[in-house]
Simulated assay, not measured.
Amino acid sequence: MIVRDTPHSLRLFFILKGSVLPLIYGKILFITFLGAGVATAQYYYPNVFPNFTPAPIALFGVALSLFLGFRNNASYDRWWEARKEWGHLIVASRSLSRQVMSYIDGNSSLGARAQSYVIKLIIAFSHALRHQLRNSDPWPEIEKYIAKDDQVFLKQSHSLADALLMLIGKKLADCHRENLISDIILASLTNHVTSMANVQASCERIQNTPLPFAYMLLVQRTAYLYCFILPFGIVASQGLVTPLFSAIIAYTFFGLDALSEELSEPFGVSANDLPLHSISRTIEINLLDILGEKALPEPIEAIHHRLE
């Protein structure tokens, strides 16, 4: 995710970090050269293109703008819902850890081990969920938080994040059987575990349910078609500035299309995707602090205005 102060009006035109321009500049150049060719032909051969009225082009542009607006809204809704779910994960993780430290007696060795065990599993869950959503290997990052007796079970599980929640639930049940927590406290702790499971399910739903392909295809085809015919429709009225107008409109429509495609997949590593690494590191720092650890990992900092 791009994090930076709003640049002043002049610098705004020269910023590439976080812009979709690197993704679409080839398309813009093609439309610009097409516009230049059409304008040149119109200049030397004035009757080569009929004098079209710009009304159909304007109506076509309005319709395309509505399509792109609907798609951008749908993509942003997915992005924002994903961000809210990770916000809920922060709340559930902190609340569960705080209650574990408050309600389980840490003065006994049994209670202290249970506290450390559960909180480290919560940390491992946040990292495991991030790696699951990004299709990467979580073990180099979470192995230090997993007891050796549990690693075989976790490595054999189909869903690592779900298996970690299962271990947390089992440990809380063991604490109840050993009279470390009461029935009421167990129910409260279990509610937070359920909230973490809800976050996992919501993120999986977002990841596994993309925007309808036919809708995306329709919008992209319409954008390409509009930008291709635009120079022919405006050359009679705009003349030699046709390439300029064509480039600006192509940047707008192709840029909206590319941006909505990025936002529709919020868990990736593109410039405008969610900073899941930073969020999971925040959970890790907070929970280790709750546990009383002194050597805390450093927060993830933005590199060149980009936070991952």
Rank of each mutant, 00 (worst) to 15 (best):
I248Q: 12
A247D: 02
A36E: 03
L64N: 01
R306A: 07
S260V: 03
N191Y: 11
A114H: 06
L59I: 10
A147L: 14
A58Y: 10
S246C: 10
I57W: 08
F33E: 03
L288N: 09
I142H: 00
Q156W: 04
L21N: 05
R11G: 04
F70R: 11
V62A: 12
G233Y: 01
H277T: 14
S280M: 12
L180A: 04
I283S: 00
T282S: 15
N47C: 04
S116W: 04
F245E: 02
A295C: 06
P138T: 13
M166K: 12
V20H: 01
L167C: 12
L16H: 10
M1G: 09
P210I: 07
H158E: 14
L64I: 08
L154D: 00
S109Y: 05
K170F: 09
Q220D: 09
G233W: 00
I234M: 09
P140C: 14
S19H: 06
E301L: 13
A82Y: 04
H127E: 06
F213R: 15
E301S: 11
H158G: 09
E204F: 08
T190S: 15
C203E: 02
T53S: 15
G255R: 08
Y103S: 07
E178I: 09
P7K: 15
A197H: 10
K148C: 05
G35T: 04
D162T: 13
W79K: 03
L96K: 03
I206E: 00
I2Y: 07
A201V: 05
S270P: 01
Q207L: 14
I119P: 00
P212E: 06
R281E: 04
L34W: 03
P275Q: 05
L186P: 00
R281H: 05
E284G: 06
S97V: 06
A223S: 14
Q207G: 02
N198K: 15
T40M: 07
R221I: 04
I184K: 14
Y215Q: 12
Y103R: 12
N51A: 12
L10I: 13
I168R: 00
L172C: 05
D77E: 15
L12P: 02
L10P: 01
V62G: 02
M216S: 14
A124P: 01
L307A: 11
L23K: 13
A112V: 03
I184Y: 13
H131V: 07
G61S: 05
R306F: 04
I122E: 00
T53V: 10
F30N: 07
P231N: 09
W80P: 00
Q151T: 14
T282I: 08
I229D: 01
A39E: 00
K27G: 03
R205I: 05
R205Q: 10
R205P: 00
